[in-house]
């Protein structure tokens, strides 16, 4: 697979705090790349740099599109979504709460709709091309509603959905922007095992059918170990390991980061056993 995203020497400082310290990695097309690490490792900061939220202190973020390369760190936030086509979801869900589920998916397609509607002028005149585009937008929205099991709730307010549905709607909305790279920030947070299993198959469907790169931040190891092709481990803003799930699972540096150094004895035996199981079984 060709490289989709190359992060080169990314450093992000907030005053005296270095949130990310010289991190480099690459993510490939049609692969799921997971970024894991303990809390505060800088995972979400990486996402914020990628989506134009933060301007990195140092480093370059290259998104390849054939022969073309987008330099994400130089783009304004909406251009990242519009031109480089990077979409993301949030750890704390951010839907448009006062819009219906369907509208949330339509607003994600507004760029092509605005273009087709000639900045609303053609739309007001009810021209055919706009009608067609609008129908297509609704079709695409319905497709993703179906994939995320939300068809029945299409006309409900987004804020009225239960938690798990909101999470899936956020993914559906990201997909409606027609992304080249999808960044998911803890999509399985707060999900029960059944829901995480469904999430796994949704992500694999996106990877296989839509052929885009997925970047995933996740704490739920049952998700990470099962679907990731490649894992990057961050700790205190540094990359401490990288590789296939198998390699990462057995990497001593990773185990140390998750369990702490020489602290195993101090943990109560049942907790230590739990942690052991987590890391060995995933």
């Amino acid at each position: 697979m060709s490289t989709l995203l190359a992060v080169n020497h990314l450093t992000m400082r907030f005053g005296g705090l270095t949130a990310i310290d010289d991190v480099s990695f690459a993510a490939k097309n049609e692969e799921i790349t997971a970024i894991i690490g303990p809390n505060g490792a800088g995972k979400t900061t990486v996402f914020n740099c990628l989506t134009g939220f933060y301007k990195p202190t140092v480093g370059e973020l290259l998104l390849h599109e054939g022969a073309l390369t987008h330099r994400l760190e130089r783009l304004e936030d909406f251009v990242v979504a519009q031109k480089a086509r990077v979409a993301r979801t949030f750890q704390n869900i951010r839907l448009f709460p006062a819009m219906s589920v369907l509208e949330n998916l339509l607003v994600a397609q507004h760029n092509k709709l605005m273009l087709a509607s000639g900045w609303t002028i053609k739309g007001l005149l009810g021209l055919h091309s706009y009608k067609k585009e609008e129908t297509q937008a609704i079709e695409l929205a319905k497709y993703w509603l179906d994939k995320t099991n939300l068809t029945k709730r299409a006309n409900d307010n987004a804020s009225d959905l239960p938690y798990g549905d909101q999470r899936r709607l956020e993914i559906a909305r990201a997909m409606c922007t027609d992304p080249r790279m999808l960044c998911l920030d803890e999509p399985a947070a707060g999900m029960n095992p059944k829901e995480s299993a469904e999430l796994n198959s949704l992500l694999q469907f996106i990877q296989n059918e839509h052929k885009i790169g997925v970047l995933l931040i996740e704490h739920d190891m049952s998700v990470v170990m099962e679907i990731s092709d490649h894992i990057i481990v961050l700790d205190y803003g540094r990359k401490i390991a990288e590789g296939s799930p198998e390699q990462v699972r057995n990497d001593p540096a990773v185990i140390r980061a998750y369990l702490g150094e020489d602290e195993d004895e101090e943990l109560p035996p049942e907790v230590a056993a739990d942690l052991q199981r987590e890391t060995s079984h995933g």
């Binding site: 909406f78 990242v80 979504a81 949030f90 448009f96 607003v107 909305r173 922007t177």
Partner: peptide
């Protein structure tokens, strides 16, 4: 409703 999120779906805020 959410300016940040609007920018992230490609809206020129």
């Amino acid at each position: 409703q959410d300016r940040t999120m609007a920018a992230l779906v490609g809206i020129n805020v």
